[in-house]
Design a protein around this nucleic acid. Structure first.
Lengths: 216, 216
DNA sequence: TGACTATGGTAACACCATTAACCAAAAGCG
DNA sequence: CGCTTTTGGTTAATGGTGTTACCATAGTCA
């Protein structure tokens, strides 16, 4: 009886280890697929990122990817969602880097453009080419996104300090955002801003918008 | 002698007519290809517009299109260049619709957003997805584009009226444009602005930028 | 051991742009 | 008129894409 029990637990331990190895290998391959997909996306852009290339780079066949992701969009979505987290973290860091509402917003604007300029292909997918992917809460609840939640917080503080008159914080935040988005879109889509400097123009636009809001 | 001459001119006239018919048929088919390509682009967007579909819709084979255009990009470029002309005409009309620099810029902003909202797929290709296509003069000479030339004119007039301080008109025009572009990009890429109203936000952003510029 | 499942691969379908080879008809010309 | 060349279309093929159905092997577990 004791012998049988021992043997049984030993077998179950072996089985357990095997399961763990399998599971570890599974997440390892999944992570590798994600890493390769991210690299290809940054190198070749959205259009130049294909399942076949991901498969080729990892030494598997394209169909294998379907064991780990529903389809191309699901893979892309997983890659991009990590970037949304990074984006939010950087915005929060910029928020904390200053104390006055105005300085905070200027720091966040600088961080916003830095993100776009440093990761142009990623920015394109996030905010231009695949905005439909649904990682940004749409409609009137987009402030639920962590990255824009901190923007809303800063803008609300600015209003409480009397910096936006009676204007709806949502509208004020939008006004600030679209200016940055315009600069960023220009920067990542064309060379038009190369000579001007996206950061410089972004600071000008943001400062303008802030003083415009102050006059409301 | 006279007879021969007559016969010769008659033959040459027939030949001339034949040439004209051929030429007319050639431009007709070319125009049909352009019209179908434009329609498909507006219906399906840039990604969903293919030579095969254009060929299918016109009753020809895909290869025939290569007799009239170098490749897919050349066809797209021809379609889009007509839209740049339309865009410039609308901007000029907006410019003429008001008399003061400020009113002119507000009217142009409204026209800009109307263009984007009414032709979202076209706007996307022109200013987001295929800005590389080279129809906008790049670098520091982008004011050579007719549509932005009139913007530069209006901004220069605004400066002469004391509306932008000593700020470079180019920078001021950029500041105005990127705000609109941000709103437009948001409008054509997502439903985020559906509840807010792109035109309303665009007017707010433009008014903000103008009052910000006035404080320079 | 035998059934079941998980994870890979193969082959195929349906698209896509692009190119080469080809062919009929028209144009040009002696 | 008859010959050659050019024009305007075709078919066939190359190489790329996402995606699916099916198969084989190996591991899990009764």
């Amino acid at each position: 009886m004791a012998k049988i029990t021992t043997s049984s637990t030993r077998a179950s331990r072996l089985r357990q280890r095997s399961l763990e190895r399998r599971e570890a290998e599974r997440v390892r391959l999944r992570d590798e697929l994600l890493a390769v997909a991210e690299r290809l996306l940054q190198e070749n852009g959205y259009a130049g990122f294909s399942l076949r290339q991901v498969a080729e780079a990892t030494g598997y066949t394209p169909t294998t990817i379907y064991r780990y992701f529903d389809d191309r969009d699901a893979l892309l979505k997983t890659v991009i969602s990590k970037w949304f987290t990074t984006f939010a973290r950087e915005q929060e860091a910029a928020y904390r880097s200053a104390s006055s509402p105005r300085d905070r917003l200027m720091a966040m604007a600088a961080a916003y453009l830095r993100f776009a300029v440093e990761h142009p292909a990623v920015y394109r997918v996030m905010f231009l080419e695949r905005m439909d992917i649904g990682l940004l809460p749409g409609g009137d609840s987009f402030e639920k996104d962590p990255g824009f939640g901190v923007l809303m917080r800063a803008v609300t503080e600015l209003r409480d300090a009397g910096g936006t008159g009676e204007l709806d914080p949502m509208a004020a935040a939008m006004a600030l955002w679209v200016g940055l988005h315009g600069v960023a879109a220009m920067a990542v889509c064309s060379g038009i801003l190369d000579g001007i400097g996206a950061e410089r123009l972004g600071m000008l636009v943001t400062a303008n918008t802030l003083s415009g809001l102050a006059g409301q």
